[in-house]
Amino acid sequence: MSDSQLADWRKHALTLESEVNKVVVGQQKPIRLVTTSIFSRGHVLLEGDVGVGKTTLLRAFTRGIGGGYQRIEGTIDLMPNDLVYHTYLGEDGKPHVSAGPLLQSGEDLSIFFFNEINRARPQVHSLLLRVMAERTLTAFNKEHHFPHMIVFADRNQVEKEETFDIPSAARDRFMMEIPIVVPNDDHIMESLVFDTRYHDVDALVANVPENILQFDQLNIFGAMLQNSISASPTLRSYVLNLWRATKAPLDYGVQVSGVDMKRLVLSGASPRGMGMVLRAARVNAWLNERTAVLPEDIHDVFHATVAHRLVFSPVYEMRRTEIARDMLSGIINAIATP
């Protein structure tokens, strides 16, 4: 791939990022991570409190990427077949079957937006697991492919009533889990409350130009991008040390206040997880106009790509977000390169 192609695509990516930043203010870092995830061809799980703009953020990206967009709301009575087909009585009084949200856009499905994913049953998670991993679905005696599909999902960790925890296997399918927090800047907070343009979310999202990216080119470009950005032996060694540290943080002198580190980690990052770290780091290097991955690129995506993959002892699960953040920061501080 030529440098000009990389530069062109970078220009589009930064344009998309810039446009989303105009709609969703004060979320530069999550927006950069979502952009990274799109070009890494990874699924994204947004996590945050109610009303912080998770859905708005994903809708804005969806508009900029283009392609087929489908959405479903997670509810406790949602069944896997609800994702595949609808049955209804037509005007002619006869039962009809139509394609569900997963099948409606066919192969052009670009974004599948699963709102409040933790309200869905584990059966639904199971179906989603396969779709996310293989990007295929068997229905009506036929295998359907969704080569361009990226799943955007969100959940809020605070509400526990009528929710189902997403199993670690399903979490591992997401490239990133991105925390969305209310910005601290007074000016932005005031704007979010008093600026009337935030009252109508549809009108707000419509401000993002459509089809900034060519969704059907993203897979090809993403693969080429991965091949264009190199990783030196020093960096490889560094990443391996990071990986080992997620499994045995105590071996690297990592401590978290109030936590028995010997009992904390049941399972560290998976090989797939570390592969995703490198994929995301390469995209981050490209977005920063570099031709090789630096430790700083790893740091930029490390929390978002690793934290949700760690499996902790049940006693520490309630404090997962806080402990994972401290542990991963400790790992970055403890491991040096070269």
């Binding site: 630096l294 700083e296 970055i332 501080n333 403890a334 040096a336 390169t337 070269p338």
Partner: peptide
């Protein structure tokens, strides 16, 4: 030599120091 300076920077900082 570069690794040696990195090492000194890390010791001085008390943790791993990177460009960011």
């Amino acid at each position: 030599a570069v690794a040696r300076v990195h090492q000194s920077l890390n010791i001085t900082t008390g943790s791993s120091l990177f460009g960011n």
